[in-house]
């Protein structure tokens, strides 16, 4: 009961999805299923919220090292959630001024907008920009001509880096038009069009097969690790 029914549910749901692809009247089911997934994922966020509360409340009550930061997280979480769910400071839709809940939840000037604009965007964008530094350190540390494969990797990166900035135009701008393929931008184009295309394609074909077999294992109940695979 605890294990068999879920496996049956998974198998039936999955097979219906496969069949729906070939049967035109059922084609909408696939979109519906995707929507249902999104609803479930949104509802599951309550579980995530509970996990956040449990983890940080425990850290605070245990007075673990750094529990003050847990407090920051919890307060930030609580404020954002209440401001957002209650649409604090959000004006109603201009056409329906009598219905206070009609406004867009993230309106310019509203508290949630402020939080998004001045807390979330700067921190996440800066985290994202840390990549520029890590890319540099990886180039220094990992791009070493240890063997033939590594030489190919770093050689390609070298050419494309040059070919895609002003340096490429500057260095090989003198090459006559008829030998354009030998300029840095030209070589970049060949790399992108031939080897990059071929490599990407082979990876994609392999991935498609990998996904197909993983999916099949789930549908047949062979892979049930998501339910715990052994008794």
């Amino acid at each position: 009961m605890k294990r068999t029914i879920p496996i049956i549910i998974a198998a039936v749901a999955g097979l219906v999805m496969v069949v729906a692809f070939f049967v035109p009247p059922l084609i909408d089911w696939r979109e519906t299923a995707e929507e249902w997934f999104n609803i479930l994922a949104a509802v599951a966020m309550i579980l995530g919220g509970a996990s956040i509360l449990a983890m940080h409340l425990r850290r605070i009550s245990d007075q673990k090292r750094g529990w003050g930061f847990s407090l920051v997280t919890l307060i930030a979480f609580a404020i954002t959630l209440s401001v957002g769910l209650f649409k604090v400071g959000v004006p109603p839709m201009a056409e329906y001024p009598d219905r206070p809940w009609t406004g867009e939840y993230i309106t310019h000037g509203a508290p949630l907008w402020w939080i998004f604009q001045y807390l979330i965007v700067p921190i996440t964008a800066t985290m994202f920009s840390l990549l520029a530094f890590f890319v540099a350190s990886a180039a220094f540390r990992a791009f070493r001509a240890k063997n033939a494969e590594a030489v190919l990797l770093l050689g390609t990166a070298f050419i494309v880096l040059l070919g895609r900035s002003y340096a490429g135009t500057l260095l090989t701008g003198w090459v006559p038009e008829s030998y354009a393929a030998l300029t840095l931008p030209g070589m970049t184009d060949t790399i992108m069009g031939v080897f990059n295309t071929a490599g990407q394609r082979a990876i994609m074909i392999g991935i498609a097969l990998g996904i197909a077999s993983t999916s099949l294992k789930i549908l047949l109940g062979i892979d049930r690790s998501y339910l715990g695979n052994r008794h």
Partner: peptide, 24 residues
């Protein structure tokens, strides 16, 4: 934003070369 792009690319190239000089 293209000038930072150029100098950063050049730095990357220098780093790759430097890394390999050390390696050899």
């Amino acid at each position: 934003r293209m000038a930072p792009q150029l100098s950063a690319h050049l730095l990357m190239l220098v780093l790759i070369v430097l890394g390999n000089v050390i390696f050899f």
